[in-house]
């Protein structure tokens, strides 16, 4: 039954623990970005508000992904897989709009 050990290679290393201060900092950043989007939509409703939301929301998502979800510190394979999933979702949207925008 020794071969079971061979499969554990590299799988269970002690995790890389980030300092709590960093998480609090990210949280503050997320709140500030939220405030930015909300105030943009209140004070500049319409194009500017939408533009800010379009720019800021992915930034918030990226912060959550990279730090809270630790993706920045995972193996590149994880990032690649994530990008594949998001990329394919983008393809679904993009190709569908070849229909809706050209009707």
């Amino acid at each position: 039954m020794n071969h079971s050990h061979s499969m554990t290679h590299g799988g269970n290393a002690r995790p890389h623990v980030l300092p709590d201060g960093l998480f609090v900092g990210i949280w503050v950043g997320l709140l500030l970005l939220t405030a930015a989007t909300v105030s943009a939509s209140v004070f500049f409703p319409g194009k500017i508000g939408i533009l800010v939301a379009v720019l800021v929301t992915p930034a918030k998502a990226a912060l959550i992904l990279m730090y809270f979800m630790h993706l920045k510190y995972e193996k590149p394979a994880f990032v690649a897989m994530f990008l594949v999933a998001v990329g394919i979702l983008a393809i679904f949207m993009g190709l569908t709009f070849f229909d809706y925008l050209h009707r």
């Binding site: 190709l95 070849f98 229909d99 809706y100 925008l101 050209h102 009707r103």
Partner: peptide, 10 residues
């Protein structure tokens, strides 16, 4: 009845 553009792209 999809757009013609979408038809040729697909």
């Amino acid at each position: 009845g999809m757009s013609d553009t979408a038809r040729w792209i697909f």
